[in-house]
Each structure stands twice: as structure tokens, then as C-alpha cells.
Write a protein that binds this DNA or RNA. Structure first.
Lengths: 135, 135
DNA sequence: CTAAATCTGTACTATTATAGTTCTATTTGA
DNA sequence: TCAAATAGAACTATAATAGTACAGATTTAG
């Protein structure tokens, strides 16, 4: 249905919650509580975001996650890509040789353009802005 | 992965192939041959597009489908909506009361804005333009 | 008036992606 | 040393999508 996955949605909710207090360290449990999202998913997603360098971590007691950069410099596109991989409406704009119908296809470059425009939309909004009521 | 379904992709390929000769009547079998897509899916998708009024049909021998309107007036957004339902990145912009975490959510109106922008991108390109090599 | 080509509609199965869980290991602070 | 926390991987369950099948209705050609 032209949608992001629930994981991306959660990831944006989580980082955008963290952006309220960017220097703080938040534990998974705490973030699950604040956002109301299921703890195991929260833990899983935070690990992924750390793997992409969006979050910094501190292990052990009093440890947790915090945003690795300024919240206003982290875009929605970046979060989605971290969790889902490259943003691509169709296979043909993801890489080479992924589509069986490539020979008959005359739409490839058009898809690339549509895709780039959508990427621009998602890059233009930061997780900090996702917190506000007016975008 | 922020993608349209294969059905939408097929639907755009099909209508965009038909747009080459907008007044012609094409049978399912013929379109499957031309595009190289699997016949049963082609037949299924064309029925759906007819149900949404995007295609007109003629039954019986020498029957088939043709575009109900000018190809330049049929947008990619319209095709996707016909096949997948409303374009919505998240549940919260699809209707009311669909999200369990609505109380904690401060992003709803931001999502609505992102969503509208993406809808605009997909509305701005016609199936006729999807045929060209330059968008 | 019959046969073949074509759409109509629905129901079904298979496959894949996503969501969500669980468990063990490692690190750190008190 | 113990408890709180992340790290990492493997696993199961669920839901969405892809794809198939079939009986029915309509139209044209002969």
C-alpha cells in the first residue's frame, strides 16, 4: 500500500522522541515506556539504528542510547534507509539486473526520477520536525 | 522497503503500454505478451483497473480493454490507488483510530504533510510520461 | 445457432516479508 | 560480585502479496 514498514515508523517515533532532549542517554526500556511501543521491537530497532551510526551507545548500568548527531540534521529518509535499506519504489531503481522484464521496460528512467523526488521529500524533513504539530 | 507492490508496478507498465495507442482495444493475452508479464496477473489487474473506471472494456471476440481517458490525464497516483487503495505511508494518515499509539504520538500532522507531498509527486506524472526515457 | 474468444467474478493456495520473541554473551557501574 | 544495560543472532508467527484456477456471461464470426 505504498507504505513504510512498522519498524520504520517505530524508528522515527523513537528518534523523534529522543530529539526532545538530544544529549540525554535513554535506555530501551525507558523509550518503550515513553512511546508505548513493544519493548522487544524497540530494543531491536535501537540496535539497528546504532549499527547505522545514527545512535551512540553506552553499555552497562546507566547505559543506553543517545542521538549521535544534531536531531535537526537527521532526516526521515536516513532513518528509513537505516531500517529498510535503500528507498526505492520499484526493484528497477535499486540496482542492476533485478528486474526480469527489463528488456520490455521503457519506464526505468522515469521511475528513477519519481524515486529521486520522493527521496527529496523524505530528506527534507528532520526527526526533530516530526515532533511538531505543524510539520 | 518503501515500495509499491508488484501489482502496481505491473499496472503502470500495462497502462503505460496501452498509452502508446490510446484508442486501440487490447486483449489481456496480447498485453501479457507485449509486456512479458504473467498472463493471470495481467488479467487480474486489468479487471481491477476496469472496476476503478480507468479502463473501458468490450467483451467477446475481438473484445478487450482500452484506456477510458486521455493517457496524459491518468496519473501514476491514480493507478496505484486503484490497485492498492489509498496512498499512505503510515496508518495514521489513512483514517481515524487506526493507530494504537495515537495518544503518545506527536507526529501525526507531520506525517500528513509528508504524505501529501508524496501524493503530489505521484500525481504529477502521467502514465504517458512513464513511457518516455526522460520522465 | 454454435463455437471460440474474451471479459467477470470469486475463491483458493503458495510465497515472502514483516513483526515480534527469545536466549546467550558482553560490558559497566555501584 | 551482582544487576542493569547493550550486542548479536536465531527463531516463530502473522499478515500481505503474488499467483492460480475455474465456472459464468457476452459477443463476434461463420
Amino acid at each position: 500500500m505504498l507504505r513504510i514498514t512498522r519498524q520504520s515508523d517505530y524508528a522515527i517515533a523513537l528518534t523523534s522522541a529522543m530529539s526532545r532532549n538530544a544529549d540525554r542517554v535513554w535506555s530501551s526500556a525507558e523509550l518503550a515506556r515513553i512511546t508505548g511501543l513493544p519493548y522487544p521491537m524497540v530494543a531491536k530497532i535501537l540496535k539497528i539504528l546504532h549499527g547505522s551510526g545514527i545512535l551512540a551507545t553506552k553499555r552497562g548500568v546507566k547505559g543506553g542510547y543517545r542521538l549521535a548527531r544534531e536531531p535537526s540534521s537527521i532526516s526521515v529518509a536516513e532513518i528509513i534507509e537505516s531500517v529498510e535499506g535503500p528507498i526505492a519504489l520499484t526493484d528497477c531503481v535499486r540496482g542492476r539486473g533485478l528486474c526480469d522484464y527489463e528488456k520490455e521496460c521503457v519506464s526505468r528512467s522515469s521511475w528513477a526520477i519519481v524515486n529521486r523526488k520522493i527521496y527529496e521529500v523524505l530528506s527534507s524533513i528532520s526527526i526533530a520536525e516530526m515532533r511538531s504539530e505543524g510539520g
